[in-house]
């Protein structure tokens, strides 16, 4: 009797998860793989082959875009970590109990506005006739309007702004679990500030750092709105290529291949990151 109830509750709990994995993850991805392996040889005539992938390799602009997306995403991840770590450290270790909640809330507030609106916010600030350009002209520092949009720096600023919260949250939760006495012990045993940071705080926070980095990297590499709106045609983001293949060229087979390649590429980068930092995915997820 007891056993049956247990089994039933397990099935009830497990079903939505299984459906979600199957319907929203496995089936669409299998569809993508199958689609990406088809080649159009004549109208409504398809053959199976690796043609879409060979096209990708033969056309430098495609894999250059992918590499560019990957390296810029890495840069965004590093910047988000460098900016997010001090913020998380302040929230978790320095701020008092009451300020902590308020600060955390302040970090969350921008999430209430959609990505799109936030990107338009940046556009209002940065465009030729925008706030910053106007203020600079008014103050006499420059004599003609300046266009801040449509370059890599703007794209990176915008992306860091969008994703930094996903870095701060896991960092705060790991740092919060760290006993203050451990930091004090680090000093007490003769460590200087940088030594304590390098030898104690960062190793302790490593699971949080890695999980934050994974989330931020994946979000950035797969983002579409921010690079398009802030970078325009110059952004050459890989998701834009995928969109082009699907929508503009109506070449679903090639788009599916690109989508699959993006997944493989980002997974490879994450795997490499875990290898280098000596963390495991399970450890990372469990600790933060």
């Amino acid at each position: 009797m007891q056993k049956d109830v247990k089994r039933l509750s397990l099935i009830l709990l497990f079903t939505p998860f299984a459906l979600w994995i199957l319907l929203l993850i496995i089936i669409p991805h299998m569809g993508m793989v199958v689609l990406s392996l088809r080649e159009k040889v004549a109208p409504r005539v398809y053959e199976y082959g690796l043609g879409n992938y060979i096209d990708f390799i033969n056309e430098p602009i495609y894999w250059n875009t992918l590499l560019r997306t990957g390296s810029m995403s890495l840069l965004v991840t590093v910047l988000a970590l460098l900016i997010g770590f001090p913020i998380a450290y302040y929230i978790a270790k320095i701020a008092g109990n009451r300020t902590r909640g308020a600060l955390f809330l302040l970090c969350l507030v921008p999430l209430w506005v959609s990505d799109l609106i936030r990107a338009f916010g940046w556009i209002l600030l940065l465009r030729e006739t925008g706030v910053i350009s106007s203020v600079l002209q008014w103050s006499g520092l420059v004599h003609e309007p300046i266009e801040f949009l449509y370059n890599d720096v703007t794209v990176i600023i915008g992306l860091v702004y969008t994703v930094i919260l996903f870095m701060i949250v896991p960092l705060v939760s790991t740092l919060d679990g760290m006993d203050n006495a451990m930091i004090e012990a680090g000093y007490n045993l003769g460590g200087s500030g940088p030594t304590v940071l390098r030898r104690i705080i960062i190793p302790y926070a490593m699971p949080g750092i890695v999980s934050g980095c994974i989330v931020v990297f994946m979000l950035t590499a797969g983002s579409y709105l921010t690079p398009i709106l802030l970078g325009g045609k110059n952004s050459s983001w890989f998701t834009e290529q995928i969109y082009d293949q699907f929508i503009t060229r109506f070449n679903w087979e090639s788009g599916a291949a690109f989508g699959f390649l993006l997944l493989v590429f980002t997974s490879f980068v994450v795997w490499l990151g875990l290898k280098i930092t000596g963390q495991t995915l399970a450890n990372t997820v469990a600790r933060s």
Binding site: D179, A181, A185, G186, G191, P203, M206
Partner: peptide, 21 residues
């Protein structure tokens, strides 16, 4: 003198051994 310059060492209440080492 800063804490790390004093030759006074401390055993903490919960020991504060470093778990990653």
């Amino acid at each position: 003198k800063a804490p790390n310059k004093r030759n006074v060492k401390m055993v903490f209440q919960h020991l504060a051994l470093f778990p990653m080492m």
